[in-house]
């Protein structure tokens, strides 16, 4: 059975993520051990709370290098919501240095829309990797607008176009919550697990 190491950056909806993996037929477990994260077959970086809290948690546990190394060496790694934002360099949400895998700054949605964005939005994907078009559940106040060329993006539109998810090889990062996006989201998790 496939086993997913969930990086324990806080609690929030970890139970939903674990229930989601269970539906795909995989097992998951929580860890805050850098060695486990470095060697695990699959790693999930969930997103809870604020950008600063997430960065501080990663650094206080000494997980920064293990996470960057996984992503740069194309080991199966998934990030959800704040997890995606933590891959960037910085965020308008506050000070704190992200993992820097993406040379981008996370921006807040503009005041022309309700913030946070809560609910289902339509994802447009080109379908060359794991990502497919469909409806996904979002719960975010901040987002990325662009990604580097080596990443395959999927976009959605709220106040303006924003990054709904990105993928590069075995690394998948979703601004939406696949574990809360019904059968479409569970199928995405399954495709990622199956490589």
């Amino acid at each position: 059975m496939k086993r997913v190491a969930i990086c324990s950056t806080g609690i929030a909806n970890i139970a939903s993520v674990q229930a989601g993996f269970k539906r795909t037929g995989a097992e998951s477990f929580l860890t805050e051990d850098a060695d486990v994260l470095a060697s695990a077959d699959y790693v999930m970086l969930p997103g809870v709370g604020s950008f600063n809290a997430g960065v501080e948690r990663i650094d206080s546990l000494g997980l920064r290098e293990a996470l960057i190394e996984r992503i740069e060496s194309d080991k199966p790694t998934m990030a959800i919501c704040l997890g995606l934002q933590l891959l960037s360099e910085e965020s308008e949400e506050g000070a704190g240095v992200g993992l820097g895998v993406l040379p981008q700054k996370v921006e807040r949605f503009t005041d022309s829309v309700r913030v946070p964005q809560f609910g289902w939005n339509q994802v447009e994907a080109r379908g060359s990797g794991y990502l497919e078009a469909g409806w996904a559940y979002f719960a975010n106040s901040y987002c990325l607008r662009e990604v580097p060329a080596e990443w395959n993006p999927a976009y959605a539109t709220y106040d303006d176009r924003f990054v709904a998810a990105i993928e590069r090889g075995r690394v998948l990062a979703c601004q939406f919550h696949p574990e809360l996006s019904g059968p479409w989201g569970i199928a995405l998790m399954k495709r990622w697990l199956e490589g």
Partner: peptide, 27 residues
């Protein structure tokens, strides 16, 4: 049973109550 968001209310009086609900599977 569910893979859509769940909100739970009722009897949340302190932070620990909220934590217990989130750990049980509320979003």
């Amino acid at each position: 049973r569910m893979s859509i968001p769940i909100t739970v209310g009722g009897g949340v009086r302190k932070v620990e109550d909220a934590r217990a609900l989130l750990e049980a599977g509320a979003d």
